[in-house]
């Protein structure tokens, strides 16, 4: 029962998009196999929760609304009742984030291709390393770049990726591309695959990106569960 936590102490880095996309894609893949997915929303803004309450939310996905004081208990409850737990958090350096990552099997650190995002990502990485030392459990993590372009890779992004990889930080091969379809699911509800092409363009490309992202998450989880770990 893996728990995957989306973390970034910078607002707007793409945590909700990453959480909703992963939850939706895992739910889509797991529907016919009886695999249940939990989405825990501990962000006071509750954007993930609003999405999950709209029509089209996968029937094997359960929402848990949470906050700083109950996040650990809510994650543990969700773990008992579901096969996968995905946690969305507020974009600040908060106790809620620290509590959530302490229960994670994988922390996905969201980062846009900017120095500010990278600096905040480093804050989260340092927290994970300190927790790892204090509680003798290395918490696997990986940096996922968001809002990237399919056409070009800016130099700043290339530089930041190289800085992370040279420092031994694991970075996703896939990035979440900037596509309107990712925003559209918050208007229409449901998952990217079920959007209507009359309403949104680029559905196929976005669905393929969502699938590739979920596949890489699953590979990382498989490696973690077999004894190797990223981060």
């Amino acid at each position: 029962m893996p728990t995957i936590v989306m973390a970034s102490s910078k607002g707007g880095a793409g945590k909700t998009t990453a959480a909703v996309t992963l939850a939706g894609e895992l739910a889509r893949q797991g529907l016919e196999k009886g695999v249940n997915i939990a989405l825990v929303d501990a962000d006071p803004n509750k954007h993930s929760a609003k999405w999950a309450k709209k029509n089209g939310c996968p029937e094997n996905l359960t929402l848990y609304e949470s906050d700083e004081s109950s996040i650990i208990d809510d994650i543990e409850k969700a773990e008992q009742e579901n096969a996968f737990v995905i946690v969305d958090l507020e974009g600040t350096a908060s106790i809620a984030v620290a509590n959530a990552v302490s229960r994670a099997d994988l922390v996905i650190i969201l980062c846009q291709g900017s120095q500010n995002d990278a600096d905040e990502a480093v804050k989260t990485i340092k927290l994970l390393r300190q927790q790892g030392k204090a509680f003798r459990r290395d918490i696997p993590y990986s940096v996922l770049f968001t809002r990237t372009s399919t056409a070009i890779v800016p130099r700043t992004l290339k530089f930041i990726v190289s800085q992370f990889t040279e420092s031994g930080v694991d970075v996703f091969k896939v990035s979440l591309i900037e596509k309107d379809a990712y925003k559209a699911v918050h208007s229409f509800g449901g998952i990217v695959n079920n959007l209507d092409p009359k309403d949104v363009s680029g559905i196929e490309v976005t669905a393929a990106n969502a699938k590739a992202y979920a596949e890489e998450v699953k590979r990382k989880l498989k490696e973690i569960m077999s004894g190797g770990s990223d981060g």
């Binding site: 600040t92 908060s94 106790i95 620290a98 300190q130 927790q131």
Partner: peptide, 16 residues
């Protein structure tokens, strides 16, 4: 309590 202490040392504080 220990978790809160480690978190606060890392700059992750209560926002409630």
């Amino acid at each position: 309590k220990e978790l809160n202490k480690v978190s606060e040392e890392a700059g992750f504080v209560s926002r409630q």
